[in-house]
């Protein structure tokens, strides 16, 4: 019996995953504009929208702009979907983080529709979101995302979106 390959050193695994996430997020200008950052635990991602005065939509309350909330949740959904899609290729070494940083290397899924349910007004403080890919087929995907602020159990917004997956490499139109 030829024993299993030795597991890679933890730092190598960690560095590869972090670099992949950084490449995915760093290539999208709108994510920077909005100020969204991601935290990773294993394959679980949490999107964070650090509070900034620019995000205010109701100066009297004050409250986050509904458009900022929608954008935040859509960013969280799209990154989760792309991350989930890439995970096995990155883990197996078929795709390297360096390749992903190249703008043309990665085709993003396209949003077909996105529905946001505003449950409470967004407070002027940091917001968090986690997305779940409920279905991911060859052509279409459905993603749900939950947003919260102080209490994980008290969502301030949630959303569902449908996406068209990019054509696999080598099927250029």
């Amino acid at each position: 019996m030829s024993g299993r390959a030795r597991p890679e050193p933890m730092q190598v695994v960690k560095q590869r995953r972090d670099a992949t996430l950084e490449a995915l997020v760093g290539r999208v200008p709108f994510i920077r504009t909005l100020g969204v950052v991601f935290e990773r635990r294993g394959d679980e991602l949490t999107a964070i929208l650090p509070f900034n005065e620019r995000l205010i939509g109701n100066p009297l309350l004050p409250a986050l702009h509904g458009g900022a909330t929608a954008g935040f949740l859509e960013v969280a959904a799209l990154i989760e979907l792309t991350w989930t899609q890439l995970w096995s290729d990155v883990e197996s070494g078929r795709v390297s983080p360096e390749e992903l940083a190249d703008a043309r290397a990665l085709r993003m899924p396209k949003t077909v529709d996105f529905t946001v349910d505003y449950l409470r007004s967004g407070l002027p403080r940091d917001a968090y979101a986690r997305a779940r890919v409920n279905r991911s087929g060859r052509r279409y995907a459905s993603v749900h995302v939950e947003g919260w602020q102080d209490n994980r159990g008290r969502l301030f917004a949630q959303a569902t979106g449908h996406f068209v997956m990019p054509d696999p490499p080598g099927t250029d139109d």
Binding site: P29, F30, T33, F72, E74
Partner: peptide, 27 residues
Amino acid sequence: HADLVGDPATGVMHGGAVSALMDTTCG
């Protein structure tokens, strides 16, 4: 504007920017 781009391969604006425009116009 370049800072609203969602897909660097195509230069197309992010849906999140369009969402904000829609939300504000509806409001």
